[in-house]
Structure formats: C-alpha cells, structure tokens
Design a protein around this nucleic acid. Sequence first.
DNA 1: TCACTTCTTGAACGGTCTTCAAGAAACCTA
DNA 2: TAGGTTTCTTGAAGACCGTTCAAGAAGTGA
Lengths: 185, 185
Amino acid sequence: MPRNRRPQDREEKREEILAAAQRLFIDNGYESASMGQIAKNAGVTVNTIYWYFRDKDDLLIAVLDRLLAEALAQYATIADRPLNDRLLWAVDQLERLHGLVNTVHTRAPASPAVHAWHTGFHELADTLIADDLRKAGAAEADLPAMTAIGTFVIEGLLTHRRGDAGKRAVIDILVHKLTTVPTRT
Amino acid sequence: MPRNRRPQDREEKREEILAAAQRLFIDNGYESASMGQIAKNAGVTVNTIYWYFRDKDDLLIAVLDRLLAEALAQYATIADRPLNDRLLWAVDQLERLHGLVNTVHTRAPASPAVHAWHTGFHELADTLIADDLRKAGAAEADLPAMTAIGTFVIEGLLTHRRGDAGKRAVIDILVHKLTTVPTRT
DNA sequence: TCACTTCTTGAACGGTCTTCAAGAAACCTA
DNA sequence: TAGGTTTCTTGAAGACCGTTCAAGAAGTGA
C-alpha cells in the first residue's frame, strides 16, 4: 500500500502519526498508549513509526514540542493581561496535559533527550515568570527562588487537580504574597 | 527449600522481600526494578513475591508505608524546631526518594490502591502544614490555598533537585512570604 | 532497463508483569 | 502413626511491551 516518496507526503505522514500519538498520550497516558495502538490509530504498522521516529521517547518529545508551540502561540494573544489571569489561563490550558507532566519527570532520568527538553522548558518558564516578578518590583536577589516557587505551584496545580475556585484561590494568594512587600506584624 | 509455616517467619520473609524492593525502588527506580530482580535480591523466586503481595503496585504501597512510618518517627524528634528548619529537614529526608514521588503520581491514575495512598498522604501533609500556618496567624479562609502552595513547593523541590543554598533560599522565602502580613507598596 | 533511494512490512527477539498447576513442608486430626 | 489440610514455593507458560532485522515494494533518475 505504499504511495510515493515525495517530500510533502513525508511531513503529512509524520503529522498523522504525531496526531494519533498525541491523542493517545493525552487520553490514555504515555505508558498505556502502546506503539501498536498508536500505529493502528495512525493507519500504519508499528515499524513505520520507527521509520519516522527513533523510539517512543522521540515520539513523546515531538508531541511535547507540538503542544508547546500551540500553547505559546495562544499565549501571545493574552500577554497583556494581569499576572493572575495569565497564570490561571496557563493552568487551564495545560490541565488536560497533567499526565504528560508526570511522564516528562518520569522519563527524564532515563532519556537524555527528554531530560534536555525538560530543562529547556523550565528555562523558558522561568524567564517568563522572572520577567513578571521583576516588573512587579521583586528584589533581584530573590528572583530565582521566587520563580521556582511560581513554577512549582503551577506544576502542583497541574498534577493535583482541583476545582476552578480552588485554582483561583491558590493563584491569587500566590501572586498576592509574591508581589507585595511584607512587613512583620 | 521451604522451611516452615510459623506465623513469625511469614513476617520475616515479607520484610526481606520488602527490604529488597525498597532498596531497588530507591536506587534504580520503580520501573527499572523488575520483579525478577527484586526476587533475586530477596533470595526467592518471582512467584513467591506474589504469595505475599497482590502485584507490583501492592509492593510499592508497602514500601511507601514503610518509608512514611520511618519518616514520621524521625519527624517527632524535631517537631519543636522553627517551620523553616522542619521544611528543609523534610526535603532533605525525602530527597533520596524523589523518584518515588513521580512514581506515585504516575501509578495513581492506573492503580486505585496507589491513588488511595496518595490521597491519604496529602491529607496528612496538609494537616501538618495547616497547623503551622494557623499558629503563625494565617487567615483561616486562606489556609487551604496556602497549604497547597506549601505542599506544591516541597514536591517541586523533591522532583527538581537543587543545591543546599537553593533549597534554603526557596524555603526561607516561602515561609517568609506565607507567615508575614503583606501591605501594598 | 537497471540501479538507487524511500518507505513499508512480517517476523522475531528479549524483556516486562502476571497466572496456573504441581508439589514440598509443616501442622492437625483420627 | 497415617492421612488430609493448609501454607508456602516453584517451573512453566501466557499475554503484552518496545525494538530490530531482513526483505520487498514503489517511485526516481540514468
């Protein structure tokens, strides 16, 4: 059933496999989504996947890049909203991917490629958050620790889901505590 | 090679398997530690493990309970220290288990037993932290969100290791921000 | 037509967790 | 003491996993 080898089709086929993998990774989780299952959903055999991707981790990274690019594109449209709203938006957007957050943390020690992606992601996230905190007047020396707190809370909200009110409460308090100058009682 | 079936030996054998599993889970990670490897380290065959434990997740939970009990026993000895020190102590203690934190999050969706353990653990942690924040004069309405922030930051420190100074800085700022009453600049 | 590259596939390998049926060792009862 | 029962252990196999290999088909260029 092979069709041709035009460069255009190469990308199309890759995209089909990627789309199937993304759906299964998100819906069933990385571990539960077997290569056979992904192949069947993409209308190919298992071996074909290995023609386009080195291994399952490589497939994971391609899916992550896809999702990150999509999220960043949408983020640009709300970049001027207050920090509160943007953080809540990020959590809402990434919430359906909460399983992948754990997957990245689990695969990173075993897969250098996943580890590299994870490092790059945190550098990006830290830059964005630090920028905000700096504008809010945070002390420069405290920035690394404060951005870490921001990142950890967002990751926590992703991996430990709670209702809309709960999310809003956590983020509001976080932003309030981080962007106001405290005085001892 | 079977010895006897005295009730005492039952517990001893169980402990031997548990000790081997704990060491391999911590050193090699849950996924990398195969049942065959655990069995060999415990001096039994794979099937014997299944006589004492329902499945691999059940083995994981038994290991987690073991570690938690041990940690709580040690925690009692420093319960009167300032919040800063206790949080840093907790991170240091649990740091070597950082792989298991991810493992619990990964297995929880697939295994009801692991999910239940995870829920129970967070209830315990929330109780401890909320108690501290209440004593520090935090508003009662803000407690749920603030305890969540505390938990998320500790989990973040466990899954994203950094040096001693980094840990100390994050915890100091966290405690400072959470336990002082802020005023707008 | 013929070699060459691109792409696809069936089959197999070594590994995982788990289960099944069989049997050995200790205990209990008759 | 003999026989049955329970507790524990095991070898073998099942079902699945990710991955690799060798073979072959489809399209391209000479």
